[in-house]
Design a binder for these strands. Structure first.
Lengths: 239, 239
DNA sequence: TACCAATCGGAGGAAATAGTCCATTTACTC
DNA sequence: GAGTAAATGGACTATTTCCTCCGATTGGTA
């Protein structure tokens, strides 16, 4: 395995000025992704970092590489939110505060919000954190169900649906009604309580959810590299 | 008032070939908006219609004009869905089937889905239909609340939140899990039932919802015309 | 038929974005 | 302090999309 930019000791072996620029790029990208999402123009990142476009592209050959480097730490923190909620004794409090906290993150940081809804292609380093996060989500749900405080017919993929919904509200109402997402989350949490509810339509399968996340990544300019000779025909809805 | 293209007898007075082309443009736009949303490239509409870009722009000087002409009828039909649900005797059935039907429309037609979430600037003709639709939505909600089958703390703006959520799910999972939206709608409907629910965070005010819809329209390339000397500074998140 | 105003269509300018290239500059090594 | 490989940055190409302009064409009429 080649030591890439996203290796733990990232950027080791770079010349001092290169290392400095790398850091400035990461900081600029962090802020710009936060404001505009992970599909923000990279030229703008370069400009804000005070480097040329060439420098940015040499350091991070693809948007995926940059996004991974920028959010490496945050991704782990989000998994941490899930694991922390699991340490909460009350299963309902754990489940509900997890959802509230993660949705708050999405509302406050558009880049992280994007990241929670997509699957990075070949996400070498970040894969571990994503894996931990997914497991924490599923554990939170199952624990709450076993305790009888969440309806039994929910599956982990429903959390993905919740996050998609929350992200959309947060994006759309960010300026006009910055707290609208809280209301949606409260309503969704209500709908999670067990009760006299009829049968639900089928949830997405894990595979379907993963494919949706992957397709979403592509719309954000995070397509996998290589793929030589890609036809790249963009038909109507990409199906 | 000048007789514009979107006058009831649209296109009256045009030469025969111009009228024919106008129709072909509308049909092409209808299909392309359905597949890709109302922000699809107009050049593609022209190409599919088999006319030059100039012809399209002469006939419909702005994207707004084209969108209005294309969806004039559908907009009225959507208001009709609401009014039809009001004629349903059971307030809950009316409310829930309205939501299901309108969400189904959004899932099946991305253009209409877009349209339901935004406010067209100066929507001359379509304003009436939108007005009817909003009133029907509010009436459905209030009637269900008076009958005690929907919790009292919901407001009409919550329906907007529901539609935003549904639109996001529909878009994101359209290929991978085409029926996922049904599950979200079912969950949201559950959350509308009255019960032992705690207080909800504040809903967007009508003004806030309207502003969100308007801002959303702008991101779809549906900005109002004129506005001479517009500064047009696009800062980070447009706030 | 013949005329002309209405219409056409596509060439092309402008803006935004992605990604490459290379002449110049600079940090490290000896 | 000089040499060299690394690093730089912005000019440049390509692409996409919007929108305008104008010479060529054609429908409707006399």
């Amino acid at each position: 395995m080649v030591a890439t930019e996203s290796t733990p000791i990232a950027g080791r072996g770079l010349r001092a000025d290169a290392l400095r620029n790398r850091q400035r790029i990461l900081e600029a990208a962090r802020r710009i992704f936060e404001e505009r999402g992970v599909d923000a123009p990279l030229d703008e990142v370069a400009e804000r970092a005070g480097v040329g476009a060439g420098t940015l592209y040499r350091r991070f050959p693809s948007r995926v590489a940059l996004v991974e480097a920028v959010f490496e730490q945050e991704l782990a923190e989000m998994a941490g939110i899930g694991e922390e909620a699991l340490r909460c004794e009350d299963p309902w409090v754990g489940f509900s505060t997890y959802l509230e906290r993660i949705c708050a993150v999405m509302a406050a940081d558009r880049g992280l919000g994007d990241l929670l809804l997509l699957k990075l292609p070949a996400s070498g380093e970040s894969a571990g954190a994503c894996e931990r996060h997914s497991r924490a989500q599923a554990d939170l749900l199952v624990r709450a169900q076993k305790a009888g405080v969440v309806r039994d017919d929910l599956v982990p993929e429903d959390i993905f649906l919740f996050l998609v919904a929350n992200g959309a509200i947060a994006r759309l109402t960010h300026c006009a009604a910055p707290h609208a997402w809280r209301r949606l989350v409260a309503l969704l949490l209500d709908s999670c309580r067990p009760g006299r509810n009829g049968p639900l339509p089928a949830a997405p399968t894990p595979l379907q959810a993963a494919r949706a996340q992957q397709e979403h990544a592509e719309t954000k300019g995070l397509r996998a590299v290589s793929c030589e000779g890609s036809g790249d025909q963009r038909d109507g809805r990409g199906c």
